[in-house]
Nucleic acid binder design. Structure first.
Length: 892
RNA sequence: GGACGAUUAGCUCAGCUGGUUAGAGUACUUGCUUGACAUGCAAGGGGUCGGCGGUUCGAUUCCGUCAUCGUCCA
């Protein structure tokens, strides 16, 4: 009678209850907390803070799964781990949401006023700010929630002020009247990288500007005719022979009859349009620079709403596009329009609302980038900062090399207020903490100051995230212990926005990189390869996926079959495959548990069978390979290795091989009890270790099973990461099993081709003269019998008489005979063998061709040549055996 | 205009520093209620690795070039 007990586990795994239970347990026990007073090597990560009012999308799910995998792995590997979570106040996005809500009540933020409006935003934050973090918990993220931060909490705000003040004092922050990108809809400036350029079909209008003195005209090409109202010059290239005579003269802007000079500047591209360009310093960044070089006035012709203003003469009050239309038709009527060409050009749009951005001159705050960018580039060259994959280094460096000053002021209410006060009576500026605003202006003695109304770019506070979350500007233990962080995991779309800025801020304020590695992953696309977006409606809600399939399935699926940095197409079918894998592990574990109820933790291994030695060796190799994959950030590769090992080697082979021993039905062993105990030990060891390797990927499932297996410790989370055990590396066992597996497959193939009913046991005769093979066959006889459904397996010498009425296959110098008596059709069998012979001959030919190539033999490494030679020999023997068999059948 | 990535089985993707008979999942075909699992088992079919050159004894892998698609920058 067998020692099988029911486990009480259901046939299919139900993630829901399991996941909630374990997450709660981990939280209650404080397993996620970053230790402070414990010595040891550290591993720290700051979570890219999602928008506080947002909800979890697949991008977050991927990003945080990757972080969680690294974090859980390192924690098991004995590192002192700190993973800080948090959320971002997301200036424009959040403000827009609250404004939207207000609009539904028929109100605007101006109706409320600044203070009341901010209260509303805080209310909103308190109400919805926990949604995304609770969603992250469903995903299984093991971050230290006791240290959760928010970019506008007290500490982060303090850091922001401190950084602003220090940069101001170092002259790295300045206020300037410069050209910025203005979003007429959001009513704020945005930085250069917040402008998205889109190719759009437009026109190139050629406009005649009459020469002021004397006769003639110049024709100017422009994509934005309405800005001509703000022209303060036209420019030509200094070497352009066509226009030499005009340099220094004046031309007249049509319609408004304004006289402006013709200037010469290297910047002008003589081959573009007519080689004469209009210069509008107030509405174009390049013209702005040129205007500075030539001391041209700046004429702003638009309001903040992009409505033409008083400088637009007859067009005052029109929006920029109606103005364009009207102006063009007026020019045409008056004969000033030379021609219209079709022209594709890049139009800058607001990343938030897609409104076409208007370059404008306006007083704003800027960060001087050159001195900050230099060290941020150096650390990469010095190897102190690494990008994974490395190709992203170029993207990062390229941006920093061509960087322009960063406009950090935003005309919003929600955000970090700029810590600057202006004297109401003179031009004195105070920059510092609010509690230290002077009573009297040191310059004029006035007693009233007004704070700058603007707030800072959200990315300004995000840039400080790696040290503000650790408590800076206080000198905290966290900061000492965990800065710099180990790795930043983020999408490739925010290298500029965020990564680069964290690096220079970290270098400036901590004198060290904020993280040593930057692990960049791709974006998640829909099945057709399109970006997921609200407007397309092709988004997939990770929470729905978790509810349907479980977090482990989602996590594993997201990181499988993908290489670092590459985009991922999201296919629902892939979820099913992963769910099946989860279920497979569940059932393999059920099997193990059925046979482990009486497991006593038997001390010695006992006598290991070939199958035991094989699976232990394979398991060991997987331990090494998975660890190495993780070290290289090859998360997908690690997942693949575990999938293959568990499904193919552990389930399909080892469990099948070990069944007779566990059921006590292996009559080939002398001591059935001892054999069973060894099997139990190996089964538990390998399964338990594999679950540990899998834990970073599938935290919930692995914990659930591990808890039921015989184990030491309270949680798999804090169990020690498996290490390679050299005693279990056994290449001989791997080789021997490989032969047996091949034989079994081959025998099964014969049975299938001959339509032997699956349940019917049939005799197998194996012939070989190889001593080694004979030994292996003898040892593996019972495996062959059980897995190839053989009634009897006889092993004989090739020289003995060949079985009659049998079908044949040849595997590595072993001839397999499946005697079927009269059932076989000799003609058909000859045909089958001839097919096989043809394949063998073809391969042999290829090998012989290679070996007879003198340069191959002399130039290729010896091992390679030797390997080819062995294969050729093998093929030769197989060929001979096949020919003999065919000959024998023919002579019947 | 510049840079980067992709192009491998019907579909989705692996394939590290050049030597495997080019792999997986899925789909497909055939047969199976085999005492863990039909979310499963077994056996199979399916690819001139985008085109053209080059380096090499040998190229899916390295180099050049072109094509198509995508992304970023200007």
């Amino acid at each position: 009678m067998s020692d099988v007990k029911q486990t009480g586990l259901s046939k299919t795994y139900d993630p829901k209850e399991v996941e909630e239970k374990w997450y709660q347990e981990w939280m209650d026990k404080g397993y996620f907390r970053g230790p402070i007073d414990v010595e040891g090597e550290t591993f720290s990560v700051v979570m890219p803070p999602p928008n506080v009012t947002g909800s979890l999308h697949l991008g977050h799910a991927l990003d945080n799964t990757l972080q969680d995998i690294l974090v859980r792995w390192k924690r098991m590997a004995g590192y002192k781990v700190l993973w800080i979570p948090g959320t971002d106040h997301a200036g424009i996005a959040t403000q827009a949401k609250v404004e939207e809500a207000l609009a539904k009540e028929g109100q605007s933020k101006y109706d409320l006023g600044r203070e009341a409006f901010l209260e509303r935003v805080w209310d909103w934050k308190h109400q919805y700010g926990h949604r995304i973090t609770s969603q992250l918990k469903k995903l299984g993220t093991s971050c230290d929630w006791s240290r959760e931060r928010f970019t506008m909490d007290e500490g982060c705000s303090k850091a922001v002020q401190e950084v602003f003040i220090q940069l101001f004092e170092k002259d790295l922050i300045y206020r300037g009247n410069r050209i910025i990108n203005w979003c007429p809809k959001c009513q704020t400036t945005i930085s250069d990288i917040e402008v998205e350029h889109q190719e759009k079909g437009g026109n190139l209008w050629h406009i005649r500007y009459p020469v002021a003195e004397g006769k003639g005209e110049v024709v100017v090409a422009t994509t934005r005719p309405e800005t001509m109202l703000g022209d303060t010059a036209v420019a030509v290239h200094p070497d352009d022979e066509r226009y030499q005579h005009l340099i220094g003269q004046n031309v007249i802007i049509p319609i408004i009859d304004k006289t402006i000079p013709v200037i010469a500047d290297e910047y002008v591209d003589p081959s573009f349009g007519t080689g004469v360009v209009k210069i509008t310093p107030a509405h174009d960044p390049n013209d702005f620079e040129m205007g500075l070089r030539h001391h041209l006035p700046q004429v702003n012709v638009m309001t903040k709403e992009a409505i033409m203003n008083e400088h637009a003469g007859p067009y005052e009050g029109m929006d920029r596009y109606s103005c364009r239309k009207k102006l063009v038709s007026d020019l045409e009527d008056k004969g000033y329009l030379a021609k219209i060409d079709e022209h594709v050009h890049a139009v800058g749009q607001c990343y938030r609302c897609d409104t076409v951005v208007e370059p404008m001159v306006s007083p704003q705050w800027f960060v001087k980038m050159k001195p900050l960018a230099e060290p941020a580039m150096e650390v990469v060259h010095e190897g102190r900062l690494n990008f994974v994959p490395s190709r992203f280094t170029k993207v990062y460096l390229g941006w920093l090399e061509n960087i322009r000053d960063w406009c950090i002021s935003r005309q919003l209410w929600w955000g970090h207020r700029i810590p600057v006060w202006y004297c109401d009576d003179c031009d004195y500026i105070y920059c510092g903490l609010s509690e230290n605003v002077p009573d009297h202006c040191p310059k004029c003695g006035a007693t009233t100051f007004t704070q700058d109304p603007d707030v800072l770019d959200t990315w300004f506070s995000s840039a400080l995230w790696p040290f503000s979350t650790l408590g800076w500007p206080e000198e905290t233990e966290e900061l000492k212990k965990y800065y710099p962080t180990s790795v930043l995991v983020t999408g490739r779309d925010i290298i500029f926005f965020w990564v680069a800025r964290m690096v220079f801020m970290g270098l400036e304020f901590q004198k060290d990189v904020p993280f040593r590695d930057v692990f960049i992953h791709g974006l998640i696309l829909d099945g057709q390869g399109r970006k997921m977006s609200k407007s397309l409606g092709n988004g997939v809600d990770p929470i729905e996926v978790i509810e349907q399939y479980g977090a482990d399935t989602l996590r594993f699926m997201l990181v499988t079959g993908n290489t670092p940095g590459n985009d991922i197409r999201f296919h629902l079918e892939r979820l099913e495959g992963t769910r099946n894998f989860v279920n497979k592990i569940w059932n393999a574990s059920r099997f193990a548990l059925m046979h482990l109820h009486d497991y006593k933790g038997h001390q010695p291994w006992g006598e290991l069978t070939l199958a035991d030695r094989w699976i232990l060796s394979r398991y060991n190799s997987v331990v090494g390979a998975v660890t190495k994959a993780l070290e290289n950030y090859d998360i997908g590769e690690g997942a693949r290795l575990l999938y293959d090992f568990l499904w193919n080697e552990f389930c399909d082979w080892y469990i099948e091989l070990v069944k007779p021993r566990l059921y006590g039905k292996d009559d080939t062993v002398t001591d059935a009890v001892a054999s069973r105990q060894t099997a139990q030990k190996v089964l538990r060891h390998v399964l338990s270790g594999t679950l540990q390797l899998l834990h970073p990927y599938m935290p919930f499932l692995t914990e659930e099973i591990w808890q039921q297996l015989p184990h030491h410790g309270d949680t798999i989370m804090l169990s020690s990461w498996p290490e390679v055990d050299p005693n279990h590396v056994d290449y001989t066992a791997e080789e021997e099993m490989a032969l047996l597996m091949e034989l079994i497959r081959s025998a099964r193939n014969l049975r299938a081709e001959m339509n032997v009913p699956p349940g019917k046991k049939a005799e197998l005769i194996l012939l070989t003269d190889e001593e080694k093979a004979q030994k292996i066959l003898t040892e593996g006889k019972s495996y062959i019998a059980s897995l190839a459904t053989a009634s009897e397996v006889s092993i004989r010498s090739i020289k003995t008489e060949k079985p009659e009425g049998a079908v044949t296959a040849i595997v590595q110098r072993v001839e397999i005979y499946l005697p079927l008596k009269d059932l076989i059709d000799i003609e058909k069998e000859i045909e089958r063998l001839q097919k096989e012979l043809a394949v063998t001959e073809k391969e042999l030919q290829r090998l012989q061709g290679k070996l007879s190539n003198q340069s191959f033999v002399s130039k290729a490494p010896v091992e390679v040549v030797e390997k080819e030679r062995e294969k050729a020999e093998e093929g030769q023997k197989k060929k001979k055996a096949l020919e003999e068999r065919i000959g024998a059948l023919k002579s019947l």
